[in-house]
C-alpha cells in the first residue's frame, strides 16, 4: 500500500490555562485538571483559522516531502470550523500551497474525525492510481461554549499529510473504519456553539467507536497491542484516550509521545493527526504506529503505519510538534481569550 511522503503540523502560539478558565467560572481548577488531565490549550489569534493553519501545516508537509507541488493531484481538508459555510477552504489552501489548478479538492466535515477522513480519501486516491500524490489535512479552530466542559479543551491546530507511492516516510499497512449513527455531539446550521449529550459522549460514543475500530484493525491485521512502538487515539480530553488505551492493553509508554492534549487541548479534526505528527517527529525506522480517530455522530478511522529508513532525515525539515507545544508565546487572561474567540458582542 502507498504511504506518507510528507507531514507537517501547526499549533497557534497563544495559550490559556485550565486554571484561568476555571477561575472565570468559579470552578475548582485542581478538580478539572485531575478529571480531564488538561493543563492548557492553544488559542488561535484573530488572524488564524482552519485555512491559515492548513496552509502552515501543508507547507511543512511539502517541505518534508520535497516534491513538486504541481504533482499533488488531490487535496482534502477536514474540519468542523471551515471559515465559510459555503465556499471551500481547500481552494484557498491550494493556491497558497502552489497546488493545482489540475487537482481534485473537497472540504470534509465529520466532527472530530474529518482529519483522518481526508487522509483516508487522499490515501485511497493514490492507491487507486488516480493521482501521484494527494494531501489530506485535519485542522480546526474549535468552538466550546462559555462555561461548558468543552471550553477547557476546544483549541486550535492541525496537521497535513502528503500520500504517495514512492520515497515513503511511513508505509500505511492497514486501514479500518467503524461508523454508526450516534448523536453524542452536534451543531445545527446557524448555531454558534456545538452541543453535546454529556456522559452519553463517553461509553456509547467515544469508547464504543474508538475501541471497535482499534480492535477491528488489530483483528484484521493480526497485530497485538504489544507490537506497536506508538499509539494515538483521538484526544477530546486527557483522560479518554488513556482510559481506552488501558482497556485495550496499550501501555502509558506507547501513548506518551502522541498524547499532546494536555498542552494543546482538543484540536478536533487536528487532534489525532497532530498526535501522529508528534510520533513521526521521533519515530525510528521500522517502528509500528497505530492511530485511531473519533468523530461524534459517530465514527472512527484506524491506520497502522510502519516508519521507513527515510523518516529520520525528514524529521528536521520542518517544525516539530513538541517544539511548538513547548514554546508558547503568550498566556492569555480569560478576557483576552474571550476577545480573540469573538465571544464578546461588539458593534459592527
Amino acid at each position: 500500500m502507498p504511504g506518507i511522503v510528507g507531514y507537517g503540523a501547526f499549533i497557534p502560539r497563544n495559550r490559556i490555562s485550565s486554571e484561568e478558565i476555571a477561575q472565570q467560572w468559579g470552578k475548582d481548577a485542581a478538580t478539572i485538571q485531575r478529571g480531564l488531565l488538561l493543563k492548557e490549550k492553544s488559542v488561535p489569534g484573530l488572524d488564524e483559522d482552519t485555512i491559515t493553519i492548513s496552509v502552515a501545516a501543508g507547507r511543512s508537509a511539502l517541505a518534508r516531502a520535497g516534491i513538486d507541488p504541481q504533482k499533488v493531484g488531490a487535496l482534502y481538508i477536514g474540519s468542523e470550523s471551515h471559515p465559510y459555510a459555503v465556499k471551500p477552504s481547500g481552494t484557498i489552501v491550494l493556491e497558497a500551497l502552489g497546488l493545482g489548478p489540475e487537482i481534485h479538492v473537497a472540504d470534509f466535515e465529520f466532527a472530530c474525525k474529518a482529519g483522518t477522513e481526508s487522509m483516508s480519501v487522499a490515501l485511497a486516491m493514490v492507491e487507486a492510481g488516480r493521482v501521484d500524490y494527494a494531501m489530506g489535512i485535519g485542522a480546526d479552530t474549535s468552538q466550546g461554549a462559555p462555561n461548558d466542559a468543552l471550553e477547557f479543551s476546544a483549541s486550535a491546530g492541525g496537521a497535513a499529510y502528503v500520500f504517495g507511492k514512492e520515497d515513503l516516510l511511513a508505509e500505511v499497512l492497514h486501514t479500518y473504519s467503524y461508523t454508526s449513527d450516534t448523536p453524542d455531539f452536534w451543531r445545527r446550521e446557524g448555531e454558534f456553539y456545538p452541543r453535546h449529550g454529556g456522559r452519553f459522549t463517553g461509553e456509547p460514543a467515544y469508547f464504543h467507536h474508538v475501541m471497535s475500530a482499534t480492535l477491528g484493525i488489530l483483528d484484521r491485521s493480526g497485530h497485538k497491542p504489544g507490537d506497536f512502538k506508538y499509539a494515538v487515539f483521538h484526544m477530546p480530553n486527557g483522560k479518554f484516550p488513556l482510559t481506552a488505551a488501558k482497556r485495550m492493553g496499550f501501555s502509558q509508554e506507547q501513548m506518551e509521545q502522541g498524547w499532546v492534549v494536555n498542552l494543546m487541548g482538543n484540536t478536533y479534526s487536528g487532534s489525532s493527526p497532530t498526535g501522529l505528527a508528534s510520533i513521526l517527529d521521533v519515530a525510528d525506522p521500522d517502528d509500528l504506529i497505530l492511530i485511531t480517530s473519533f468523530g461524534s455522530g459517530a465514527g472512527s478511522d484506524s491506520f497502522i503505519l510502519r516508519a521507513t529508513d527515510l523518516l529520520p532525515e525528514k524529521q528536521d525539515l520542518a517544525p516539530k510538534v513538541r517544539d511548538m507545544l513547548n514554546s508558547p508565546r503568550k498566556y492569555l487572561t480569560y478576557g483576552q481569550y474571550a476577545k480573540l474567540r469573538e465571544k464578546i458582542i461588539v458593534n459592527d
Binding site: G45, D47, T52
Partner: peptide, 22 residues
C-alpha cells in the same frame, strides 16, 4: 512570513488573506 487572515469584508463578505511577519 506566515499565511494569515488579513481582514474580513464585514460580517457576511469575503475573507481576505495574505502574509504577516512573526
Amino acid at each position: 512570513l506566515e499565511f494569515r487572515l488579513i481582514q474580513k469584508e464585514g460580517n457576511s463578505g469575503i475573507l481576505c488573506y495574505g502574509h504577516k511577519g512573526v
